[in-house]
């Protein structure tokens, strides 16, 4: 019965679809940790993801389907299989890994060229801010050339999945963008 009412309620708000969000990024950036921090609110020790993890969570009355795809080189080619109907992409950067930030940038721009992701909002987490030597959000933004992005809502947030810093802040922004787009 509760389900029935909530679905009517959803329809009143014009939201009758699950919102699909992808978490992408290079291996070891902290994608799985972020996913389970969102789902359970605690920090787990995770194993490298072979394939993907998917969780459904409710955030601010919105039902989210969050897909965390593995970041290893061998798995990256399969990201595109999961692009369809995606409302937003969360791209996670290991801010301490300055060597690979260019690789990350390349992967990001390659992904954003995909037709299926033209309407998706982009949230970048400059992750691992708790560690010494981490680049600041603006430094990361420069490296990723985020300012070049046109026709897309995007934001970058300094975060630490371990401490929870910035995660909810980023997600709040994302939800606002999604709600806005759905109301239009």
């Amino acid at each position: 019965m509760g389900n029935y009412f909530s679905s009517i309620f959803d329809r009143l708000w014009g939201i009758n679809k699950d919102v699909r969000i992808l978490i992408l990024g290079l291996d070891g950036a902290g994608k799985t940790t972020i996913l389970y921090f969102l789902k359970i609110g605690e920090v787990f020790n995770t194993n490298p993801t072979i394939g993907f993890n998917v969780e459904t969570l409710t955030y601010k009355n919105l039902k989210l389907n969050v897909w965390d795809l593995g970041g290893q080189t061998s798995i990256r080619p399969y990201w595109r299989c999961y692009y369809a109907n995606t409302a937003a992409v969360i791209f996670v950067i290991d801010s301490t890994d300055t060597d690979r930030i260019q690789t990350a940038s390349k992967e990001l721009h390659l992904m954003l060229k995909e037709e299926e992701l033209q309407d998706a909002a982009l949230l970048v987490f400059a992750n691992k801010q708790d560690l010494p030597g981490a680049l600041s959000a603006s430094e990361v933004s420069d490296s990723l050339k985020l300012v070049d992005l046109k026709d897309r809502s995007w934001s970058i947030v300094a975060s630490s999945a371990k401490t929870g810093e910035g995660i909810h802040e980023g997600l709040d922004w994302l939800i606002d963008v999604i709600k806005e787009e759905q109301l239009q």
């Binding site: 194993n47 394939g51 993907f52 993890n53 998917v54 399969y78």
Partner: peptide, 12 residues
């Protein structure tokens, strides 16, 4: 091909 993509999900 590429069936290893479901590994993590199965493990969970």
């Amino acid at each position: 091909e590429d069936t290893l993509m479901v590994t993590s999900s199965i493990m969970k």
